[in-house]
Write a protein that binds this DNA or RNA. Structure first.
Lengths: 350, 350
DNA sequence: CTGAAAGCGCTAACAA
DNA sequence: TTGTTAGCGCTTTCAG
């Protein structure tokens, strides 16, 4: 089983009666080989069960791959920042210096800055692009251009199913929503739930948490049909305003003790929760931002539903790189990640 | 930041005014270099911020590493089988053909077969050993011999803290126990818990789940001090006997609706649970065996506390290999894994 | 103690 | 269309 280790390109060449260069041409489908020789080589490869030594290949070829990462800019600790971390640890894993990354950040509230970043990518002649779904229409236009230019692209976290992406790494948002509702309600009698949402200035942006909310509502329909959900919207950049809105909301609905935030910013509730302690209250949030984890640690959030954001990104660059390096389609195109449940007692080492 | 990519051993040699071979000797502390030259080389390395290209290094050195895996033999689907899977996927990740694995299985009920396997390893002149803790005394003796022979070893899952292992990958069993008690009791009024244990023929075997049980009890002490735990023991190889014991146990304690199995075999309760359905009952188990996952899927077990067994093993061989290849101590010696909570609604893609 | 040189298995440019 | 050859960056043996 491990004796195939000895099989080199040289053995194949000898058996096929050709030069090493020719074998190489066949292996990498570089063309310029007669049908007949190709068959001989292929036969020899099969017979010897040859597969190229990636180490040697790496060393000899000075090929460089530049992967463009197209994601919103973020401050440290925000969602997109941990995604960026994941990208970087991904290239670290494929230790070969053959792959490098370039960030193309844009303002997630500004489609023009997005289009701008796309243009820069097209101008830079990168080998591939990893991205998320933010502005759907602009994304479709960009993907079209990439395909025309023969540049492959991959999705992290969210994807558009009908596009011709190379790989995808992410979790099912509908299921995440479903799970969140389970965690918020099981073992309890819950008749009212407060759903806190974020005021957004959409400008063509796809609603990023729609599917999560749908999953959440679906669970209720399936298991707590009598349960009612009341929503309110808070301004993400305005702690004062947020506090006030939450106070008004809870004053108007004093019977609500169960809250959910389907977006990644349950930490925005912190002030409110700290000021109005209530042992009967239960809060479920999403995503493994530092500040969210701290909420769980401090007992303000009971459950956090998440997948490892950095790992998702990490996997994406690893898988995508493999495709680029090998020049072939991935063994598995869609990599769905398991959803993690985080509580106060399994937070360590996450 | 990426321009250090150009720095080769040649640059260092030139700057230090020595031959490449000398630089190599210094880098790998192979000795035979005068203090003075060594300093020059070290200075040059620091100045250029040189670090060896692992790809080239790999290719040039024909070193081979054979890692011995010392774990109990297992049938497919059992705990040790998934650990073995993880080992194998680990070597697959370090694609370099420099590392290979050899399994040394023993009968987990038979210390003699264990000692036998140890002897075989010693005879085979392996480069390193990955193992778990089963027979503590015999293990200590073996570890001593390994140290004497200069063979490094790593632990997966469980470890003995006072031994001089190279790396460890696993999860904290005490915490796992603590978490399990939380999941079994929170949001509920629980005053009695049934703990199902396995009848074992110890013969010098360390009790593998002691710490888990301690963690479990500790949680109760901290959060449900009035809660009482009743134990019973079932025979692992005897479904009839198991059923009968469980029936007797529950007949004797009809008020118990909360059960825990701290070992990896909650699936042994399946028959009983199926025959005596009870929507009020709650069961918590451990470890991600296929058959346990099926119990969760079928609603027989409410929560499973686990870490990815194969991943643990996978990480162990990857980390251990890195140490072997680089010949140096690991950056991080203890790799603690986060504990996963598995429920019916986040089972997919695990 | 140190330098020189022959590869490791593969790629790519150049000849033929 | 195919063969030849000079490296990739490092290790290791053999002289000196």
């Amino acid at each position: 089983m491990r004796n195939d280790k000895a099989v080199t390109i040289f053995d194949v060449a000898r058996l096929a009666g050709v030069a090493r260069g020719t074998v190489d041409r066949v292996v990498y489908k570089r063309g310029g080989v007669s049908k007949k020789t190709e068959e001989k080589v292929l036969a020899a490869i099969k017979e010897l069960n040859y597969s190229a030594n990636p180490i040697a290949s790496q060393l000899a070829s000075k090929r460089q791959f530049l992967i463009a990462c197209l994601i919103p800019s973020a401050r440290p600790g925000e969602y997109w920042a941990s995604m960026q971390e994941g990208f970087e640890s991904g290239v670290a894993e494929i230790r070969s210096h053959a792959v490098s990354l370039k960030m193309y950040n844009f303002d997630s509230d500004n489609p023009d800055s997005y289009r701008d970043a796309c243009e820069r990518i097209l101008g830079d002649k990168v080998s591939g692009v990893i991205m998320n779904v933010v502005f759907e229409d602009a994304l479709r236009a960009f993907a079209g251009k990439l395909e025309k230019a023969g540049i492959p692209y991959a999705f992290v976290d969210r994807k558009l199913d009908d596009l011709d992406y190379t790989v995808y790494c992410g979790a099912d948002p509908f299921e995440a929503g479903y799970l969140g509702a389970y965690l918020l309600t099981h073992r309890m009698q819950v008749s009212r739930i407060g759903m806190i949402r974020i005021q957004r200035d959409p400008r063509g942006q796809a609603d990023p948490n729609k599917l999560r909310r749908e999953g959440f509502m679906r669970y209720l329909k399936d298991y707590c049909p009598e349960c009612k959900v009341f929503s309110t919207f808070i301004p993400p950049q305005d702690p004062e305003g947020t506090l006030q809105i939450l106070e008004e909301f809870t004053a108007a609905h004093p019977e609500i003790r169960h809250f959910v935030m389907a977006n990644s910013r349950v930490h925005l509730m912190r002030d409110f929760l700290v000021r109005h302690p209530d042992p009967e209250r239960s809060v479920v949030g999403y995503d493994d931002l530092e500040r969210n984890l701290a909420m769980v640690q401090d007992g303000l959030v009971e459950y956090l539903v998440t997948r490892r954001t950095p790992r998702q990104a990490h996997n994406a660059v690893v898988e995508f790189s493999k495709c680029l390096i090998s020049g072939s389609a991935p063994a598995k195109r869609n990599h769905y990640m398991h959803m993690d449940i985080l509580s106060r007692f399994n937070l360590k080492d996450y």
